[in-house]
């Protein structure tokens, strides 16, 4: 279910293009914010939680997920170079699972690692805040990568839809309509973080069992469906 050549091509495509700049910029921004906050307001658990929850988990993780998830397959389908993968005796789900693995690894590396570093800078992992949000970022990375990889497989406008989901649905609707929060990867990840932190600082609108079911369900379904779509991917000619 994993092909090292597909993985190598995907890594190089993801980290070699302009989109890699955004991959580096967002975590750098988070670290800068963390340093600034620490300098101006000292080590404060609540502030640390606000920064990590408000910026790292709510904005950075989904954005990195959009870039890595859609970028792992979208551009290849758009420009047609995916034909070189498809014209091989290679099971379509293997291509998807490999690309998902790469997308997850990249999302984790560029979101969970900086989240942990920022947490340490902010309050030295007081009340397990840094660990909690890092785990939330790790868990979120998996679901986001699967979701956005599917988007990249089915739509030419995957980045736009991804951004709309990440920014409009999760951030805007999530803050206005409480029901929207149930259908939010961010809230599911927070449920896991809440369990880890244990205290009052991290909280989610979704219970842990439901969150886990939804995380696993969405990841598995999205991956399965992306594999199906790739099997019947139509590469229209130039005509």
């Amino acid at each position: 279910m994993y092909d090292p050549t597909v993985a190598r091509l995907t890594y190089r495509a993801l980290l070699g293009r302009r989109r890699a700049l955004i991959l580096f910029t967002l975590p750098a921004l988070l670290i800068v914010i963390a340093v600034a906050v620490r300098m101006f307001s000292g080590a404060d658990d609540q502030v640390a939680s606000d920064v990590l929850g408000g910026f790292a988990l709510a904005t950075m993780v989904p954005l990195i997920g959009v870039i890595a998830g859609t970028g792992a397959i979208g551009p290849e389908i758009d420009d047609g170079s995916v034909v070189y993968l498809l014209a091989k005796p290679l099971k379509r789900p293997t291509i998807i699972v490999t690309k998902l693995t790469v997308a997850i690894a990249v999302t984790m590396a560029f979101s969970a690692v900086p989240t942990f570093i920022a947490g340490i800078i902010l309050n030295g992992n007081g009340q397990q805040v840094a660990i909690a949000y890092t785990i939330a970022a790790l868990v979120g990375s998996i679901a986001y990568a699967a979701l956005f990889l599917l988007l990249g497989t089915v739509s030419k406008h995957a980045v736009v839809f991804g951004l709309v989901y990440a920014l409009v649905w999760e951030s805007l609707f999530g803050s206005l309509v409480s029901g929207a929060r149930t259908l939010s990867v961010q809230q599911w990840s927070l449920a896991v973080a809440e369990k880890v932190a244990g205290g009052e600082l991290v909280s989610s609108d979704v219970g842990l069992p439901l969150a886990v079911v939804l995380l696993v369900g969405v990841t598995v379904l999205a991956t399965w469906y992306a594999g199906q779509k790739l099997r019947t991917l139509t590469l229209a000619g130039e005509e």
Binding site: G16, R17, A87, K88, L90, R231, T232
Partner: peptide, 22 residues
């Protein structure tokens, strides 16, 4: 929908795109 067929087929597509970074 038969990927095993590609053991027998080689394809030279018209489109230019081909992993230009390699």
């Amino acid at each position: 929908r038969n990927e095993q067929i590609y053991r027998q087929i080689g394809i030279v597509p018209e489109r230019e795109a081909m992993y230009d970074f390699l």
